[in-house]
Amino acid sequence: MRMELIQPFIGSLDTVLAEMMKSPAHIADLTMEEEGYRKKGLAAEVTFKGQIEGRIVLDADPAVAVKVASYLAGGDLGTSDAIVWEAVCELANMVIGNAVTQLNDRGFHFKVSPPKVLTQEQCERAGHDSEATILRFETPSGNVHLNISMHYHARRSRERNAVVVR
């Protein structure tokens, strides 16, 4: 996988988490995985379509989700399932959206789907047929994993840039 496609996600997660948790996040681990992905906490998936296709799973420890929920709501909200799931989806939306913005402005044209919550079964199914890069970030409240599986379609890019001469 091209590093230039992954770099914006690292920068975006760092920026968004630093704003929400008032403390920087740092990369603790980077691994490759070809088997189905086993989620570690609460996972949300965003899929891509266009010159870049694939998906990203953002997987956060429940304590991180609670902290994000408090930031988004401007106060303590408790730890109900609905609240933490919603917080993880919104975190995925912000992190992935900001990175997608950077990639589109660099000439990679693609669209994203709204984030959706993933069960363990869906996680394994989503990851079993493609190689993924998994980044683990450490924060004071726990870990956040980004499971990135993307493919760049150079041919679609050439077609888009083709000039028709009449």
Partner: peptide
């Protein structure tokens, strides 16, 4: 108001 803010959008 969106997290996806590239120029085309």
């Amino acid at each position: 108001v969106s997290s996806v803010g590239y120029q085309d959008n």
